[in-house]
Amino acid sequence: MSDTVNKMRELARDLLAKGEVKYVIGWEKGTLWFQSPPVFITSPDEVDRLVFDDFAINTLVTYLLEERGHEGKVAVFVKGCDSRGLVRLLQDKSVDRDRVYVIGLPCSGKKDPNQAMEMNAGDASQIPLAAKCQECTHPNPVISDVTIGDPVPEKPNQGRFGNVNELEAKTPDEKYEFWAQEYSKCLRCFACRNVCPACNCKECLFDSTRPRVLGKANTLSENQVYHLTRAFHVAGRCVECGECERVCPVGIPIMKINKKVIKDINDLFGPYEAGVDLETAPPLGQYKSEDPEEFM
């Protein structure tokens, strides 16, 4: 067992034994060797279930939303990407900082479980990094109460918008064709929304029945309404964790449109990365006199 995992378990045991937190959200080993799903540890006797291996890929911070309306403190493990999701939730005032004990874990990237399923290698070293980890710019947590392990060297931020250039090179008709093909695959399972730390509305407008904003028929036009509204709603707030695209069962390149929107925001309002600190407000959530106003 790695030193990091031992320290994670010790800390969790200590926090639970002293009653400092109600529960600890971490990862445990799943059914198959390439699955390390979330686990909620409520008692010191259960801390040995915690792991932090090549497949501890899920963000855990969205579970903090379920604490709305409750009391007491919970502990959560965060990788770099997850910590930016937590900043998102804190900035949106969806999570109370005093009620979260944040345990940071520097992360050099997780392996792609889908590839593991297909390759069936039985050995994580042969599995490539997950797509979302290949473009990681913040491997170290940007917020934490305590950090376990040494910081991981930051990777040069190359190719953040690589996919976007490819998209921008298309003609309008080609873009429409591309997205129509992708959105026609959508099952409307809403996994991309449910896993997203920027999607933290108490009631999502897509769940509204009166009025019904989104028709329930699975048609291209309804799917487009869903995906484009979602992309615009997280504009300037998306922390680029890539969870939406990772959980999509039909492989819609959701990050491609998110990154296009982020690139446009960078072009319009200057360089910006969401969720890297608590102080900088999202460009679309503030007004500056020097904001561009070509349309006025």
Binding site: P38, V39, F40, R188, C189, A191, N194, V195, P249
Partner: peptide, 13 residues
């Protein structure tokens, strides 16, 4: 129930 995301993947596949 706790770790469930509440999405519809399981029911649709």
């Amino acid at each position: 129930y706790r770790k469930c995301l509440g999405c519809g993947i399981c029911t649709y596949v």
